Computed example of a mutant assay.
Amino acid sequence: MRATLIEVAPRDGFQPIAPFIPTNEKVAFVEAAHAAGLRRIEIGSFVNPKAVPQLRDTAEVLRRTAGLEGLDAQVLVPNARGVALALEAGARHIAYVVSASEAHNRSNVRRDVASSIAEYGEIVSGLPAGVRLRLNLATSFDCPFDGRMAEGLVLSRLEALLAHHEDVEVGLCDTTGRADPDHVFSLASACLARFGEWTRWVFHGHDTYGLGLANVAAAWRAGITAFDAAFGGLGGCPFAPGATGNVATEDVAWMFARMGVNTGVDLDALVRLAARAASLPGAAPGGRVRAALLGACATT
Rank of each mutant, 00 (worst) to 15 (best):
A298I: 10
P285F: 09
F231S: 13
R39W: 08
L187C: 07
C173M: 09
E31K: 15
L280N: 10
L87Y: 00
V8F: 00
S45T: 08
A240Q: 08
G223N: 04
V154G: 02
G82R: 04
V75I: 13
A226K: 11
L162Q: 02
R288F: 07
R106M: 14
S101L: 13
E42W: 06
D251S: 09
T225D: 15
N48E: 00
S186Y: 00
F239L: 06
T244H: 12
A73S: 13
G90K: 04
A274E: 02
G295R: 14
R134Y: 09
Y120E: 03
V113S: 08
A35E: 07
L267P: 08
R221I: 03
G205A: 14
H104V: 07
T225K: 15
L158R: 08
R288W: 01
F185N: 10
D167H: 11
M149T: 06
A253E: 01
R40V: 12
A129C: 04
L211A: 10
R11Q: 12
V113R: 01
G245F: 13
A219W: 02
A9K: 01
K26T: 09
D268K: 14
P128V: 06
G90N: 07
R11F: 11
G286S: 00
A291D: 15
S189M: 01
F145T: 11
R132P: 00
V131H: 08
C297V: 12
V30Q: 00
T300F: 13
P10I: 03
S125L: 10
D57M: 03
A51C: 01
A114H: 10
G245R: 11
E42V: 01
A160K: 15
L162C: 11
V52M: 05
P281I: 09
A18E: 10
V271G: 04
D251Q: 13
L280T: 03
E88F: 03
L211I: 07
V47A: 13
L137F: 10
I94A: 07
A284K: 15
R272D: 07
A277T: 01
D146H: 03
C191V: 04
E25N: 01
